[in-house]
Amino acid sequence: MHHIVEQLKQGEPQAAANSVVNLAAIARSIAQQHLGSPPVTLDTDLDECPVSADKIKLTNILTNLVQNAQDATRNSGGWVKLELTKNQDYAQIKIMDNGVGMDQQFIAERLFKPFDTTKGNAGMGIGAYEARDYITKNAGQIHVDSKPGQGTTFTIKLPLAKLISDKPRTQ
């Protein structure tokens, strides 16, 4: 907690040690290891999806968003799904649920505000703030679409890492 408070005071956290990581492997790991109710399903046909990120930080952020989706989806027939796709430039991962949802005012005024939680003592209110902060500092985008009573979708776009093999060879 002290570390987080210090980061917020300083404004710019220390740069994380980014490397090329396989977002498809991270998503598979989260779906397989994240036990809870409802279970998490993964929808992707990708084996490789290289992005430049701190693997631990990105995994923690996605895991937190999945846990929040599960917490919001306790009803019978509830579901949580990860969907991973990519195009030429970006990887896109969606965390979707059919839970309680959020209204637009909450999204605009409170969702990304640090230490503002609806979970009482069960949460610290930094997950969404930390997700947006990390994603935007890594040239990515995060978007939230939600409707009360219908569920929520977090869409995260991260630039694909350019691998050495992608570059044209020079002679």
Rank of each mutant, 00 (worst) to 15 (best):
Leu46Met: 07
Val20Thr: 14
Val66Met: 09
Asp97Pro: 04
Ala72Trp: 04
Lys113Val: 12
Ala27Thr: 01
Ala17Leu: 09
Ala17Thr: 12
Met102Phe: 15
Leu65Gly: 09
Arg110Asp: 05
Val100Gly: 01
Ile56Glu: 10
Asp103Trp: 08
Leu82Glu: 03
Gly101Asp: 08
Glu48Trp: 00
Val51Gln: 06
Gly77Ala: 13
Ala69Thr: 05
Asp97His: 05
Ala24Tyr: 03
Thr63Met: 04
Thr41Gln: 15
Asp116Gly: 00
Gln32Leu: 13
Ile30Gln: 06
Asp116Gln: 11
Asp47Tyr: 01
Ala108Gly: 01
Met102Tyr: 14
Ala25Leu: 11
Lys94Asn: 15
Asp71Pro: 00
Asp54Tyr: 03
Val66Lys: 08
Phe115Gly: 06
Val21Ala: 15
Leu23Ile: 10
Gln104Ser: 13
Arg28Cys: 04
Thr117Cys: 03
Ala25Val: 09
Asn68Asp: 13
Asn68Arg: 10
Val51Ile: 14
Val80Glu: 02
Thr41Arg: 15
Leu84Asn: 07
Met102Leu: 15
Gln67Arg: 05
Asn64Leu: 04
Ala27Tyr: 01
Gly99Thr: 06
Val51Glu: 04
Gln32Thr: 12
Lys81Glu: 03
Asn18Gln: 12
Glu109Ser: 10
Phe106Ile: 03
Thr85Asp: 12
Gly99Pro: 03
Gln105Ile: 12
Asp97Arg: 05
Asp103Arg: 06
Pro114Tyr: 01
Ser76Phe: 10
Val80Asp: 03
Asn98Tyr: 05
Asp97Glu: 07
Asp97Phe: 04
Ser19Asp: 12
Ile30Arg: 06
Thr41Lys: 15
Phe112Gly: 02
Asp54Leu: 09
Asp43Arg: 05
Ser19His: 08
